[in-house]
C-alpha cells in the first residue's frame, strides 16, 4: 500500500496535507492522531470512498477509486460506526456478506472467533457497543481479505474483548494479511503495530516502529509515583548527576528530566529507601508512545 503526497480538502480546510507513507505486505500499520487529524479521511480514500484532491494512493497495486470492482473482493473493511442495521440478526448479516465473496469464511466459525456465538440470533439493536464492534470486525474478515482496514477497532470494547481482538489482529498478520488500523489507544498501537504513523492536522509528524519513536527524542526521563509532596530539592541533592528538573505533574506523579542512567535510578532508589517511602511504579529511559504522541501533537513545539 502506497500513499504518495496525498492531499484532501473540504472547502478551505486541508484535512489531509501532503501525506506519504507505505505499508509492506503482512505488516500491521497504525495510523495515530488526535481527533480531526485526517485519519478516517485517509482510510476512506484508501477504501475507495473518496477521491484524492492531489497525490495518489495504491492499494494492492490498484487505484481504489477506479479499480474498486477488482479490489473489494480482496479487502476487508471495518467502519468507525459499524454500518449495521438495528433490525438484523448477527448471524444474518454475516451470512449476507458471506454471500458477496467467492470463498467466504463460515459465519459460525467467525462468530466463535469473535466470541459472539451466544448472541448469534440477537438483533443488532440488542447488542452492546463492544459486541457490535466485534460483529463489524467479523464482517471485515468474512471474505478472507488480503488487506484489512480497521477504523478504531477496539472502541467501546471491554478489556477482555480488547485483548482477544489484539490476538485476532496479530493472528491475521501471522497468516500473511496486511492490517491498517487507526486508534486512539497508545497501548494498542504499542502492542499491535509493527510501525505507526502519527498524523496531526493532516500532516505526518512521525513514522516508525513504536519503540523507535521514543528513542528519537532528545531528552529521556524517569517517571515514578510515590507519596504526594515529597521533598524534591532533597531528592535533587541526593542524585549524583545534575538534573534539569524534578516535576510533580500530578500529586504523587513525579518526573525527573535527565538522562535515565542506572546510576540515577540507583540514587533515586536509595533516597526512597532511606526515607522508607513506598514506590508505586517506576519507568526510566525512552518515552512511551503516549508521551511521544502527546509531545508531537499537542502544542506544535516540534512541528
Amino acid at each position: 500500500m502506497v500513499v504518495d503526497h496525498l492531499s484532501k480538502r473540504y472547502g478551505e480546510r486541508a484535512v489531509v496535507d501532503d501525506l506519504s507513507f507505505t505499508v509492506a505486505p503482512g505488516e500491521v500499520f497504525g495510523l495515530l492522531g488526535p481527533n480531526g487529524a485526517g485519519k478516517t479521511t485517509t482510510v476512506e480514500i484508501l477504501e475507495g470512498f473518496r477521491r484524492p484532491d492531489a497525490g495518489s494512493v495504491q492499494v494492492l497495486g490498484l487505484d481504489p477509486w477506479r479499480d474498486g470492482r477488482a479490489l473489494k473482493p480482496r479487502v476487508g473493511v471495518m467502519l468507525q460506526d459499524g454500518g449495521l442495521y438495528p433490525g438484523i440478526k448477527a448471524h444474518e448479516v454475516l451470512r449476507q456478506y458471506a454471500g458477496f465473496f467467492a470463498e467466504p469464511e463460515s459465519p459460525e466459525g467467525l462468530l466463535e472467533l469473535v466470541g459472539l456465538t451466544d448472541v448469534a440470533s440477537s438483533h443488532v439493536r440488542r447488542l452492546s457497543g463492544g459486541q457490535r464492534q466485534r460483529l463489524a470486525l467479523a464482517l471485515a474478515l468474512v471474505g478472507r481479505p488480503e488487506l484489512v482496514f480497521l477504523d478504531e477497532p477496539t472502541a467501546g470494547m471491554d478489556p477482555h474483548a480488547r485483548t482477544r481482538t489484539w490476538e485476532l489482529v496479530r493472528s491475521l498478520a501471522d497468516g500473511g494479511a496486511t492490517v491498517l488500523l487507526t486508534t486512539h489507544f497508545m497501548d494498542e498501537a504499542e502492542r499491535l503495530c509493527d510501525r505507526v504513523a502519527i498524523v496531526d492536522q493532516g500532516r505526518l509528524v512521525a513514522l516508525g516502529a513504536p519503540g523507535e519513536l521514543g528513542a528519537g527524542l532528545a531528552s529521556s526521563e524517569t517517571r515514578f509515583s510515590a507519596r504526594p509532596g515529597l521533598d524534591r530539592d532533597s531528592l535533587a541533592g541526593a542524585l549524583a548527576m545534575a538534573v534539569d528538573a524534578i516535576v510533580e505533574d500530578e500529586p504523587g506523579q513525579y518526573r525527573i528530566v535527565a538522562e535515565a542512567t542506572p546510576a540515577l535510578v540507583a540514587d533515586l532508589a536509595c533516597w526512597l529507601r532511606d526515607r522508607d517511602e513506598p514506590i508505586g511504579d517506576l519507568r526510566a529511559g525512552r518515552r512511551t508512545l503516549e508521551e511521544v504522541f502527546l509531545r508531537l501533537t499537542n502544542d506544535g513545539a516540534l512541528k
Binding site: E47, G48, F49, R69, K72, P73, V75, V77, L79, D81, G82, G83, L84, Y85, P86, Y97, F100, F101, L139, G143
Partner: peptide, 18 residues
Amino acid sequence: GFERRYGVLKRLGASPLT
C-alpha cells in the same frame, strides 16, 4: 432511508456488492 442513516449503504459500498 434508515439504511443510509445507519451507514448500512456505506458499509455495503465497501463490499463486493456493486
